[in-house]
């Protein structure tokens, strides 16, 4: 297999907790705590987990919108964290992001045309203004909007349409990787599937790889090739989508999947209810971070963190059950 497009190795983002008059650092919130995964050319990597588990921080750290505190991000053979300012700017043509909130992610004072021209102007693409205008119209058509509406303002569009504009903006620089940070969570269910299908079509047409961040397992299953399950800043299980859903290994994944509603009233399934709350990422539990809520907790889990192991080809899990 060829080199993966994106390799994340031991990514860490610790936010300092500052207290007192002197603003001294008293501990850290370990939002992302040693996350590693690969994204291959043209595939969709799903990243799921509860809110607060560090999914979004992971996504933004990869783009250095949040500066990571540790680890390596190798994109296209280059270590993103070591790039200088101008190299980073060039790199951004290949890595884009689609945000969760379609209302906050578009500048309310720009017309759609200005929003979509912005990336072209920044990177000096498509020479003159007439050429850019044509490209804007193309982009809008690509995401299923009429090019004739380019002179309108974002507030004149619906949530789903705004999200399409956000996607068009990401496409404007022809990226190879798009980090989709819960791109459909803020949308109505009927609009969700349209936007998901659009993302799917774009991938087929342009071969873009996605890191798809979501908390909705059915959404992730629909779109992902491989899925990483995050818990408290770590990836606990990583597997191809089909395998993960048919045979979840990690007890946390099992609990999550048992919560996905099945559209069959006759269907009875053992529902695993997680006990307790998500622990604070500033004071994570000893040993395996998941042990206080785990149904299969053993003695060793309380003292020793489990190793990240490939238990089957292409299936990784961090759990003592599989040692």
């Amino acid at each position: 297999m060829s080199e993966p497009l994106l390799q994340v190795r031991g990514l860490e983002k610790y936010f300092p907790i500052k207290k007192g008059v002197m603003r001294l650092t008293r501990g850290h919130v370990r939002a992302v705590d040693g996350v590693s995964f690969d994204v291959r050319e043209g595939e969709t990597f799903g990243l799921v987990g509860e809110s607060g588990c560090g999914k979004s921080t992971t996504g933004r750290s990869i783009l250095r919108l949040i500066e990571p505190t540790g680890g390596q991000i190798i994109f296209n053979g280059k270590d993103v964290r070591k790039l200088g300012r101008s190299e980073m700017r060039k790199m951004r043509r290949d890595m884009q992001i689609v945000f969760q909130d379609p209302y906050a992610s578009l500048n309310p004072r720009y017309t759609v045309r200005q929003i979509l021209e912005e990336p072209m102007i920044i990177h000096g693409l498509y020479g003159g203004s007439a050429e850019r205008k044509k490209k804007v119209a193309d982009l809008l058509e690509t995401v299923g909007l009429s090019g004739s509406r380019m002179n309108r303002y974002p507030h004149e569009f619906s949530g789903g349409q705004r999200q399409r504009i956000g996607i068009a903006r990401a496409l404007a620089v022809n990226p190879r990787l798009i980090i989709a940070d819960e791109p459909v969570s803020a949308l109505d269910v009927s609009v969700q599937s349209q936007v998901l299908n659009l993302l799917d079509d774009l991938q087929k047409e342009f071969g873009i790889a996605y890191v798809f961040i979501a908390h909705d397992l059915s959404v992730v299953k629909h779109i992902s090739d491989r899925i990483g399950v995050m818990y408290l800043g770590k990836i606990v299980e990583l597997a191809p989508a089909d395998g993960l859903y048919s045979k979840p290994l990690h007890p946390y994944t099992q609990a999550l999947l048992s919560a996905v509603p099945v559209p069959d009233p006759e269907f009875k399934r053992e529902r695993i209810i997680l006990q307790g709350d998500l622990p604070s990422p500033s004071k994570p539990p000893t040993g395996c971070h998941f042990h206080p809520r785990c149904k299969d907790c053993m003695e060793i889990c309380k003292t020793t963190a489990p190793e990240w192991k490939e238990v089957e080809p292409d299936r990784f899990v961090a759990c003592h059950l599989y040692n």
């Binding site: 783009l63 919108l65 043509r93 884009q96 945000f99 969760q100 906050a104 992610s105 956000g166």
Partner: peptide, 10 residues
Amino acid sequence: EYVQAARALG
């Protein structure tokens, strides 16, 4: 996020 987006665009 539109400010973040501008940063992401370089």
